[in-house]
Design a protein around this nucleic acid. Sequence first.
DNA 1: CGACCGATTGACT
DNA 2: GTCAATCGGTCGG
Length: 203
Amino acid sequence: MKSPGLNSPVPDAFFLQPCLELAPQLLGKRLWRRQGKVELLAEIVEVEAYLGERDPASHAFRKTERSSVMFERGGACYVYLSYGMNYCMNVVTGKEGVGEAVLIRAAAPIGALDRFYKNRGLDRSKPARLLMNGPGKLTQALGIDLKFNRTRYGEGDLAIVEGERSYSKADIGRGRRIGISKATEWDYRFWVKGSPWLSRKET
DNA sequence: CGACCGATTGACT
DNA sequence: GTCAATCGGTCGG
């Protein structure tokens, strides 16, 4: 039996919650993306929370031109270029003026995989788990780039929509964020326990 | 304006 | 496990 509202956009109030409360709730939600005539879906399985001025690892630690989108009203999309090579996508959370966002690190592809392989430039002989098991791979698979920065989820060709289920605390793993050099001890990463689509093996 | 540095990835030992 | 690619953001001079 399917959940009511499957694949319908999440309500606006969802984005207004505090970042650390919202982040685990994002697990099981889906990214919806219309790319030309094709509609793409992927279920979020791994995220990281980035707070504002009290989080040295966050781009919003200082309010700059780049990070200003993180201070917008929850539901904004923050995309930035990482290492000059990959795009990373975030869900801005909280009320306007609060500089918080959730980085989407990994997702499970839903439906036909052809477009995902094509967007990734991956040969079909490669395992599907390589399609979205990292923040840069995820954006590439979905065709997300800087054009989406400062747009709002649910207003264009990109949305966060309801999935088939939400995960309880027992189903969610929690640990340190990956790839940062500051505040490395903070457990702000959340993932779906046992998912084969994570960016790395669970430890 | 020059220098440094990443919220990463893929190729390679 | 190691390491280079690559470039916009940020900051110091």
